[in-house]
């Protein structure tokens, strides 16, 4: 569907507020640790597309989830990943881009054997 607007050429005046170019060379990435609802929602980061996936894990994901009692027990080699709705085995040495990620990609991961306290 398309908006019904007063101005007939309204659509041509629309400026989306969050295109890639507004983020100073970064792209938005959302990350969510499944079965750990202590973290109320996915978390958002502006990141360089050339960042290696391994750096995303060690420098971004791990420290931001460190407060959880399960965090120290994570074996990252066993984590299961879903990127934009598809199960993936990311290449930790390749960049986010090379792993198929783009502006506003959503990365969900599971840590088998770890599911918090009643999924919290």
């Amino acid at each position: 569907m398309s908006i019904i607007a007063l101005a007939p050429d309204y659509e041509s005046k629309v400026e989306p507020r969050d295109p890639l170019k507004n983020f100073h060379g970064n792209m938005l990435v959302y990350v969510h640790w499944e079965e750990h609802l202590s973290f109320c929602s996915a978390i958002a980061f502006p990141l360089p597309p050339v960042m290696p996936f391994g750096a995303l894990v060690s420098e971004v994901i791990a420290p931001h989830y460190a407060a959880h009692p399960d965090a120290s027990k994570i074996d990252w080699s066993k984590a299961e990943w879903m990127i934009d709705g598809e199960k993936k085995t990311p290449d930790f040495d390749a960049s986010l881009e090379a792993n198929g990620m783009h502006h506003k990609s959503l990365v969900r991961f599971w840590t088998p054997g770890l599911s918090g306290v009643a999924f919290s």
């Binding site: 202590s38 996915a42 978390i43 958002a44 407060a67």
Partner: peptide, 12 residues
């Protein structure tokens, strides 16, 4: 003494 905070910004 480990009061839980979310140190990142949420997806909206």
């Amino acid at each position: 003494g480990k009061r839980f905070y979310n140190p990142a910004l949420p997806q909206l």
